[in-house]
Write a protein that binds this DNA or RNA. Structure first.
Lengths: 124, 124, 124, 124
DNA sequence: GTGGTCTAGACCACG
DNA sequence: GTGGTCTAGACCACA
């Protein structure tokens, strides 16, 4: 289930949108799965239906879900959306590595860090 | 000199703050260098002085500059600021690599990408 | 047989209506042919009978079919329907060409494009 | 100035969005031109500000305008938006010509029709 | 019941 | 003053 926080700087509709986006890309939700209805989710989270609807609308514009009047909202085939997302992330990856190397990090240091979630504390 | 753009999604005070932050970290501005006064910069950029003041305030809170009443604002010792920035970037690095690998990128692929600015187009 | 898709932006009754409209104009269905009954089609497609009924009603209003109480629905003489449709399309043709030329496409370019399905990729 | 009609089947926000989109693509509005503020336009058209804002938001998402907090909304550089629009129109052009030829129109007939706004009545 | 649109009015962030 | 977000509640189209 989606978690939202009023302490988060992001507006609520973005938190809802990003949570679903993440779950869909991660495969937690599969193509064809039904999302909770706008009214259902809005009452479950104690949030105005319009706010949920905006999140759903943007998910649909991004190709993540497919909303059908009278039926509900369903997870779409994520292939295209995943491609777009991967391009975004690779661009951010280049930016971050570029700035880190400008700050003195070596290529070797960053290469070792990839996938090394276990010993992450050593470099922080 | 600082460049601001009205087409940028970021508010102006963030553009000013980030520009100086970047120049200080990159060594374009050295510790002790004097920044233009709020009045000077605001008239040079045709921007409300309040906006500049907010940028300077946040730069001081981040440890990038040091403002002295009646004297002006000066670049602080960059070592601490660079440490803070590096931690931020390493955290984002971990987030981005984590999500990329969840989307199917291999560790090897990402390791090869580091520093490979010349053949970047191949992976986009 | 009619195909409907929940991922289509159009409501279902429009998909049903447009599918038959297209088949009638293309000659796949000939004047006098009997359409499946509302009950038959609604159970075959697992769709609410009201939805099918609305599609049939609009097909009859458009002159594409002729419904006889107690007998069924039959494809009408296609000549009139085709005339109406052709007028619609010619109007859209004028609108589209007008806007394309306002965007810088030349008359020659559009003339060459007509019927050039083979080399379509060159102009996209 | 924008004209909206309650008799139009399109929702109001689409009418507003499409009107500006058209004016920007046609060059009636040039890059850098300021659009009326949300409040201004909403009171001029006697429409709720939220409705106008949605139109403006979609114009920004489409790359037609650029909205800046505290400053206003301005026409963006339309080059990219025009490209996207042209592709859309060329695709519709192909669809319409294809269906017209399936209905018996000849290539020659359609080629002559292009640009022939003066003698349009002959073919309707 | 579902999603979609619209209104009325509030508050915030920014300049 | 500007745009952006959120709420509360209404009505419509669709299944």
């Amino acid at each position: 289930m989606i978690q939202i926080s009023y302490r988060d700087a992001r507006p609520i509709y973005e938190q809802v949108r990003d949570s679903y986006q993440q779950q869909i890309l991660a495969g937690v939700l599969s193509p064809g799965d039904k999302l909770p209805s706008v009214r259902e989710l809005s009452s479950a989270l104690a949030i105005n239906p319009n706010t949920i609807q905006r999140a759903y609308r943007e998910l649909e514009q991004g190709g993540y879900i497919c909303s059908v009047r009278g039926k509900g909202s369903f997870v779409a085939n994520a292939a295209h959306a995943a491609d777009v997302r991967r391009k975004e992330l690779l661009q951010r990856f280049d930016e971050v590595t570029g700035e880190l190397m400008a700050l003195g990090c070596t290529e070797e240091e960053l290469r070792e860090r990839i996938g090394g979630g276990a010993d992450r504390a050593s470099g922080d």
